[in-house]
């Protein structure tokens, strides 16, 4: 077991952990806008770490370039897709989840400003 292999295993394990965190977030968080955080942040970090481990295992080759390309592509598109989905939800008028305090505070004070579309 070379140090490089140990590093690869550590990266893959860390990536799997963050993938697990993302899944817990998507299943447990209260509403759509909160769940989008899990997929756009935690899942992206898990992907980058896991693909880093994969690149180390594959060794110096053209496939490493492909892995890096894959990671860069997902790094851009994963948050973009989450943003597009939540924007579609906002356009449809789905309200974000709030706690009791925030809801009553918003009710007491001025009405929260509507988006101007």
């Amino acid at each position: 077991m070379t140090p490089l292999e140990l590093l690869a295993i550590a990266l893959v394990a860390a990536g799997t952990f963050f993938g697990f965190v993302a899944v817990v977030g998507i299943v447990r968080l209260p509403d759509l806008y909160a769940r989008a955080h899990a997929t756009s942040k935690s899942d992206t970090l898990g992907i980058i770490l896991t693909l880093g481990g994969v690149a180390l295992v594959l060794g110096a080759d053209v496939s490493v370039a492909k892995t890096v390309l894959l990671g860069a592509f997902l790094f851009v598109t994963n948050p973009t897709a989450a943003h597009a989905i939540t924007r579609a939800a906002h356009d449809q008028g789905i309200e974000p989840w709030t706690t009791e305090d925030e809801a009553s505070a918003a009710g007491d004070g001025a009405k929260p400003t509507e988006g101007e579309e």
Partner: peptide
């Protein structure tokens, strides 16, 4: 969102 996460899981 869930299907998007499944798709990124598929890539990994």
């Amino acid at each position: 969102i869930a299907v998007n996460a499944i798709g990124t899981n598929a890539v990994v």
